[in-house]
């Protein structure tokens, strides 16, 4: 039997799970218990923080990306946490302002969601990588919409205001203990006022130690491309792609 030993540091590279390594003392130690409580306190702070708008504006300007900021009808952080319905609604004035733009192929939204920290660390980098993908594909995307107190479905309302047939909504995921900086990417074709979750494609945990930003942008670009071709997103699109993938190569070729 092989006795190769992987060091704890090498294991940490593979997974950040809080492994016990089969501790012989089979209760959590004081150090572990207090460390856990501290991480929980930090995560609570990430939930309750707001977007740093001046910094986001500067970063998008540096990247040469026009942008516009909206706030959902939730207004404050505490209301947003308790009332997700308000975080999904776009105020009329914001709708009117967005409607003045010429309709793009894809609406791009960067929302705070449940972690402004995720947007601060990964938001602009993801948007830059995504816009390069769309530029290459010859797709237009209009202004980057920064959305405060935003839930996923706020992206649909923004896309409807912009009259965009596709929407990519990147927003801060609910913080975990070890990772408070994950972005979730929700991609929807033909968004409606009441799009079901099953009609969205989703990439989660987009951050340095999760799904890396360049890979997330590439996958997002692929999904946008596929859903525009099939006119569907979510479970229906996945089924369609699975059927194509299970066909012999020559049949796939014919369908293309």
């Amino acid at each position: 039997m092989s006795t190769d030993i992987t060091s704890r540091a090498a294991i940490r590279e593979i997974t950040q799970a809080r492994l016990t390594f089969g501790e012989h003392n089979r209760v959590a130690s004081t150090k572990r218990t207090l460390g856990f409580a501290l991480d929980h306190a930090k995560a609570r702070e990430a939930v309750l923080s707001d977007l740093d708008l001046p910094r986001l504006h500067t970063a998008l300007e540096t990247a040469g990306l026009p942008h516009q900021t909206v706030t959902s009808t939730a207004i404050t952080r505490d209301t947003f946490v308790r009332r997700p319905d308000l975080g999904r609604q776009l105020p009329k004035e914001a709708h009117s302002q967005l409607a003045e733009h010429s309709p793009p192929d894809v609406a791009i939204v960067l929302g705070d969601g449940l972690s402004a920290l995720a947007v601060a660390l990964n938001g602009v980098a993801f948007i830059e990588a995504l816009t390069k993908q769309l530029d290459t594909a010859g797709l237009t995307y209009g202004p980057i919409v920064i959305a405060q107190q935003a839930r996923v479905a706020l992206g649909d309302k923004i896309a409807l205001a912009l009259k965009a047939p596709s929407v990519v909504m990147a927003l801060g995921e609910r913080p975990g203990l070890s990772a408070a900086d994950g972005l979730g990417i929700y991609i929807t074709q033909n968004p409606q006022l009441d799009t079901p979750d099953s009609a969205r494609n989703c990439l989660s945990n987009v951050r340095q130690d999760g799904l890396p930003i360049p890979e997330a942008a590439r996958q997002t670009g692929d999904i946008v491309h596929a859903m525009r071709r099939y006119g569907q997103s979510g479970v229906m699109l996945n089924q369609h792609r699975a059927e194509i993938a299970s066909l012999p190569n020559d049949a796939t070729h014919q369908l293309e």
Binding site: T20, A28, G176
Partner: peptide
């Protein structure tokens, strides 16, 4: 049960392996 109560994919806290030993 998850390692150390911390689900690093779904980003929430569940029970730890030690909790089941308790």
């Amino acid at each position: 049960t998850v390692p150390g109560s911390d689900d690093i994919m779904l980003n929430y806290q569940s029970l730890s392996f030690q909790d089941s030993i308790y």
